[in-house]
C-alpha cells in the first residue's frame, strides 16, 4: 500500500478545512479528488505531501508515518506539484528538471551518471528532450506544465500528487497532460492523486474518485457509482444528468443550462 491516510484533519484557526479524511491507494492507481472551490482538495493534497501539519490523523507512505521521514527521504518516495508553480526567471527546462534530483544528490554531492540518466529519462517521458535548452518563459502553458511534471518525474518517486495540473490550460494541453499522467500510471506503475475541476475529465481518467464538500469526504468509489449517487447535482448545485457514451467508458455529465 503505497499511500494512505486515516482520520486526517486540518484546521486553519477555528475553521476545519479537512475533517477526518480517509484515503487508501493501491500501486499504480489514479485517484482524483473533486469538489467545489474551498472543499479541501488542495488542503488534502498538501497534508498528504507533508507540507501542512495535520491537526489530527496520520498519513503513511509505504506503511510508515510521513512525519517520521526527513524531507529528502520523503521526496524520494513522493513528489508533489502545487497548483500553478512559479519558476525562477531565466531557468531552462533542463535546469528545472535537474532540481528534481535534489532528493538524490543533496546539497553537496555532484550529479552521477545515474542522475544524468534520470533527468534524460524524465525529459524523454514528457516529450521535452527537444526543448531542454529552452527558457521556461518561452514555453506554452502545456509545455511548461509538462516541464514541471518532468521535474517531479526526475525525483523517481513512486507517488505523484498533483494539484489542478490542467487548470488554465486549453483543452488540447489538458488532454496532453492527462494522457501523460495515464501513461505514468499504466507503464511506470506510479501511484497518482490529483485534484481536477473538470468533472468529465476526472471521471474518465481516474480509477477511483473522491468527492469532497466543506472538508468532508462525501463519496469515495468508482465513477459509475458516483454517477448513480445523485451527489453531483446536490453538491455542485447544478442541474444535469449522466449519459452513457460507451460501455467501456465512464458516464458523461451533461449540464443543463438555465437558458434552455
Amino acid at each position: 500500500m503505497p499511500l494512505s491516510c486515516s482520520g486526517l484533519s486540518v484546521a486553519y484557526g477555528p475553521r476545519l478545512a479537512l475533517n477526518a479524511f480517509d484515503l487508501t491507494l493501491g500501486k499504480g492507481e489514479i485517484r482524483v479528488l473533486i469538489g467545489p472551490n474551498g472543499s479541501g482538495k488542495s488542503t488534502a493534497l498538501h497534508a498528504l505531501a507533508g507540507l501542512i501539519a495535520p491537526s489530527g490523523g496520520e498519513v503513511s507512505v509505504g506503511g510508515r508515518a510521513v512525519a517520521s521521514f526527513s524531507r529528502r527521504d520523503l521526496a524520494k518516495r513522493l513528489s508533489f506539484l502545487p497548483q500553478q508553480p512559479a519558476a525562477p526567471d531565466e531557468m531552462t527546462v533542463e535546469q528545472l528538471v535537474r532540481q528534481g534530483r535534489f532528493a538524490h544528490v543533496g546539497l553537496f554531492r555532484s550529479y552521477s551518471a545515474r542522475d544524468v540518466e534520470a533527468v534524460r529519462w524524465a525529459l524523454d517521458s514528457t516529450g521535452l528532450t527537444g526543448l531542454a535548452e529552452r527558457n521556461l518563459r518561452e514555453l506554452s502553458g502545456g509545455e511548461r506544465q509538462r516541464a514541471w511534471i518532468s521535474a517531479a518525474l526526475a525525483q523517481e518517486a513512486e507517488i505523484l500528487l498533483l494539484d489542478e495540473p490542467t487548470s488554465f490550460l486549453d483543452i488540447g494541453h489538458q488532454v496532453e497532460v492527462l494522457d501523460l499522467i495515464c501513461r505514468l500510471s499504466r507503464e511506470r506503475r506510479v501511484t497518482i492523486v490529483m485534484a481536477i475541476h473538470d468533472l468529465n475529465q476526472a471521471m474518465s481518467v481516474c480509477d477511483r474518485i473522491s468527492l469532497l464538500d466543506k472538508g468532508e469526504r462525501v463519496f469515495d468509489g468508482v465513477p459509475a457509482d458516483l454517477a448513480a449517487s445523485g451527489l453531483i447535482e446536490r453538491i455542485f448545485n447544478v442541474r444535469g444528468r449522466f449519459v452513457t457514451i460507451a460501455d467501456t467508458r465512464a458516464p458523461h455529465f451533461d449540464v443543463e443550462l438555465a437558458r434552455h
Binding site: 498538501h46 505531501a49 507540507l51 526527513s70 524531507r71 529528502r72 527521504d73 520523503l74 521526496a75 524520494k76 513522493l78 513528489s79 508533489f80 506539484l81 502545487p82 508553480p85 512559479a86 519558476a87 525562477p88 532540481q99 528534481g100 535534489f102 532528493a103 521535474a151 517531479a152 525525483q155
Partner: peptide, 17 residues
C-alpha cells in the same frame, strides 16, 4: 538555486527550506 523556488515546491524536491 532551490531558494529561488516557492517553499512548497522546494520542500517537495526534498530541500530543507
Amino acid at each position: 538555486d532551490l531558494l529561488r523556488f516557492e517553499a512548497p515546491v522546494a520542500l517537495s524536491f526534498g530541500f530543507p527550506y
